[in-house]
Amino acid sequence: MFLCCCTEAGNEHHQALFNDPQFPYQDVVSARRELVRNIEVKVKYEKGSSGKLGVDLDAIDIHRGLVVKGVLPDGLIAEWNRANPENAIKPSDKIFAVNNQVGTVQDLETHIVSSGPDLQLSVRRPQRIEVTLQRPGSLGLRLHFKKSSKGVLVSEVLADGLATDWNAKNPTRRITAGDRILEVNGEALPPEDLIAKLAKEDVMVIHMLHYDQDVPKPV
């Protein structure tokens, strides 16, 4: 197993490459997905309010949106959730457009800050996938994470490896760039520990989030 990690100065970004062509694909077992849906959230900056969204956001996936790590008890999103429980923003949801504008996470953050009294967020709720991969074989994934990130980001599916073989056999349940690995073999661990388990385990039951989303084009 080849493992390469790098850190970008000042940003605590880490990258891991799992690819070892000497081992052929052996076995990929079950996958399961839950319902995915989009949510439109419209909040208003009331006069005298703090104007804070009140969410903890993960911006590691530069081109696909801001993932919600947590909702604070005070703020515009908490107020929205109390008034709209059927369309509440939850941890793991992804903000992919702001006032109908898409772009990089920096663009989205700029749109939020510069918004007028009305703010519209387009939010995507993920599917949850369970995939079992068994060695010998390489994952064939390029992974990216920060210590504070929501799981481990799949930044690229390589041409060879267990992930590519899984995709060929399961075209409607593909592992794609933008997915987030949350658990390996039943353990929800910090990102660096998830990477370590992926590097050493022979059988890997992987739980990940899938947002069914291509890289958005600016409008």
Results as ranks from 00 to 15, higher is better:
12 E>Q: 10
13 H>Y: 14
14 H>W: 05
15 Q>D: 06
15 Q>P: 02
18 F>M: 06
18 F>L: 03
22 Q>R: 15
32 R>K: 10
33 R>I: 03
35 L>M: 14
36 V>Y: 07
36 V>R: 09
37 R>F: 13
42 K>W: 04
42 K>F: 04
43 V>E: 03
53 L>P: 14
54 G>F: 00
56 D>I: 14
57 L>A: 04
59 A>I: 15
60 I>M: 09
64 R>E: 05
65 G>S: 05
76 L>V: 01
79 E>Q: 12
79 E>K: 07
81 N>H: 00
81 N>A: 04
88 A>L: 14
93 D>W: 06
96 F>E: 11
100 N>V: 13
101 Q>R: 15
101 Q>K: 14
106 Q>H: 05
108 L>Y: 13
114 S>N: 13
115 S>P: 05
117 P>S: 09
117 P>G: 09
118 D>G: 10
121 L>K: 12
124 R>E: 14
124 R>Y: 13
125 R>V: 04
126 P>G: 00
126 P>L: 02
128 R>C: 01
129 I>N: 08
132 T>C: 06
136 P>I: 08
140 G>I: 15
142 R>W: 05
143 L>G: 07
143 L>H: 07
147 K>Q: 15
155 S>P: 07
157 V>W: 08
157 V>M: 13
158 L>W: 01
160 D>N: 12
163 A>E: 13
163 A>Y: 11
165 D>W: 05
166 W>N: 02
169 K>L: 06
170 N>T: 08
170 N>K: 10
172 T>G: 08
172 T>K: 07
174 R>Q: 12
179 D>G: 00
179 D>K: 03
179 D>Q: 04
186 G>W: 05
186 G>E: 00
188 A>F: 00
191 P>G: 10
197 K>C: 10
201 E>S: 15
206 I>H: 04
206 I>N: 06
217 K>V: 03
